[in-house]
Amino acid sequence: MLEWILTAIVRALAVSTPLLWASLGEIYAERSGVINLGVEGMMILGALFAFVVAQVTGYPVAGLLAAAAAGGLAALLHAFVSITLRANQYVSGLALTMLGLGLAGVLGRGWEGIPLLNALPEISGLTYLGLLLAVGLWLVLHHTRLGMVIRSTGESPAAAEALGVNVHLVRYLCVVFGGTMAGVAGGFLSVAYRPSWTEGMTAGLGWIAIAITIFAGWDPLKAVGGALFFGALFHLSFRLQAWVPPEALRMMPFAFTILVLAATSGRRRGRGAPEALGLPYAAGER
């Protein structure tokens, strides 16, 4: 029994790694007031570029850096459209998901079916770094001036601007940071979790990362719990097949997301979304 639980915890840690990285990035983007539904698209681009660069250079870490750059660039597009052009953030994010999946599928043709020989171990630096990052990002968000600036940008951009904050700049930086994190999450999949590239390999993990962001109440520390919870659920959906019908288990992570959101939401203070989340901001307009 103890071993059963231990292995489940180890698996939860492994699966939670990409979820944690992606959701930490999304938390910062959303804290600054910009929701980015393009996580899936940024992740898959990260996965492709990480694999290609790791394969060509022989250094998986170089691959992860490339993944971060690819995710960041993709996020920059979202930032430009939703911050500078003040377009609808939801639709822009969906467009990014389509574009990312599309580009990765088109550009990745020919890289399938090649093993990555010097892959990173699965429970590796990324897992621990992710946990450290969660603590660090929590400290920054809640105990530094920078964190206060980010939060105020997401809560009340007009007030932030009155205090001399460059709202657009802060939002740009947070969104791009979110993209680099999602890129690394995707890179983890292709150079560590399952070292090879296949079109569509993110298989919905990006959406779960967005769910974790909300589930965690936009708090980096709680995101650790959220990522572990969903990691465990995903693993258990195969583990428990001997006792529960497989179809029911396969839908479990998704059904649970809804249940958990329902159970933890409500009108309690402090759990809510940043006030200005999803609202474009034009300097001096309101």
């Binding site: 993110t202 195969f238 097949q241 497989p246």
Partner: peptide, 25 residues
């Protein structure tokens, strides 16, 4: 012979966790 179903022809992530579940057993 222990079986796990993933309900997809193609889903590497699911295949991976299904394998891990079998290893754990």
């Amino acid at each position: 012979v222990h079986v796990r179903w993933i309900y997809e022809w193609f889903n590497p992530t699911a295949a991976k966790e299904a394998t891990e579940a079998l290893i754990a057993e």
